[in-house]
Amino acid sequence: MAKILIVDDSADIRLLLSRTMKNAGYEVFQATDGSEVMPAVHSYQPDLILLDVSMPKVDGFTALGALKNDPRTKTIPVIMITAKGHPDDLDTARNLGALDYINKPWSNGEVELRVQWAITALEQQRSARQRRKVEHDQSKEDAKLAELERLSAEEEHGAGGRNTLAS
């Protein structure tokens, strides 16, 4: 079950999103401000973060920047939530490394769909990485064998060569 962290200062929004996400079958954690994002990420290890832009203490963009600067958390996909919907905000979010951007008001289906898409992509990415890792390991194994073969062949050949020189 994928873990989702919801960060928003409005209790009602958090309640709405958590119910929607829970209904869609995700495990949900909550944070009320940008300043709580990093501790929450470290303690819950979420697979996806839904991050509100306007929050009182630390806003969403700042929190996003902090997430993407930390190598341990930069791979976690982040979907920004905002009511402002200004093109500049969209650019800011994209430049900072947000995966997606949801404008208020949204329909629940839309949020579900986007989250689902993001999680699916994440899983695919993970499995691909796993496959690559396996393939990589396999190829490393192959390379080792080939090297051994080459070395042993050389040994034989080399011995022959030395013999030729001595004669």
Partner: peptide, 20 residues
């Protein structure tokens, strides 16, 4: 910007819970 934020937040909540 402020008006849109202040209007859209309650609207989102209302529509979201109605959907629920």
């Amino acid at each position: 910007s402020t008006v849109s934020h202040e209007l859209k937040t309650p609207l989102t909540i209302i529509s979201g819970f109605i959907d629920l």
